[in-house]
Amino acid sequence: MVDPDTQREAVVAAVEAVAERMAEERRYLTDLDSAIGDADHGGNVTRGFEAAAEQVAEAAEADDDATPADLVKRVGRALISEVGGASGPLYGGSIMSASAELDGGITAETTVAFAEAYLDKLQERGKAELGSKTMVDAVTPAVHTYKKSIEQDDLPPLSALAKAVDAAERGVRFTTPLRAKKGRASYLGWRSVGHQDPGATSTLFVLEELLSVADDYLEGDVERDATSPTVPDADPEEAADDEGAGGADGPDAGGDD
């Protein structure tokens, strides 16, 4: 386990990385939200995470006794205060509520508990099920993959997180063809189909930045692939198809020998 001071440093670095990423993606998130929402998601999360980064850095500096859990709780509180609309309560309330799971420090076990508590609160607060075209569609596969990777596959947390990020990405893509059942997008009914969910998308950005910062602090392979290694790689029928379609003069993909 990484020592407590380094954990604090990592929490601050993670929130700063997320804040920077949101600022970069602000326009993109707002474009997604203008299609099916009220075009404020990019601005909201940017403002929220900037405030969170500032407050957490200050708190870490001012108070040597602030635990990693305290700092994470503070992130939630800042998001609640700064982010209007539904994103503040969803992001901030879930982080604040789940932060208690980190009381024992940031370990493989506590982060699994944090992830599960985050998902529980998110679903309770948003009353969204999987497939409602919300943040839940990104968080659920990420949390399930993270938990399974740690508890069943005994992977190091960094590798588990890398898989979780891939799982979230698949979840985000899955929101596009769905009809929204929650939030403002649900008022659009069938017209919401064909648009990627902004909240699920910003959730993926958060996870990507957590992975990037975790990579600076932890050992392990970073392979963004949520699929299980026990699934056969190739479909047996594919080999047969290749013979007919490609032919002897088919383009040589690799090129080198």
Partner: peptide, 8 residues
């Protein structure tokens, strides 16, 4: 969002 904000 009034519901969620109030619950939070």
């Amino acid at each position: 969002s009034a519901v969620m904000s109030a619950e939070t």
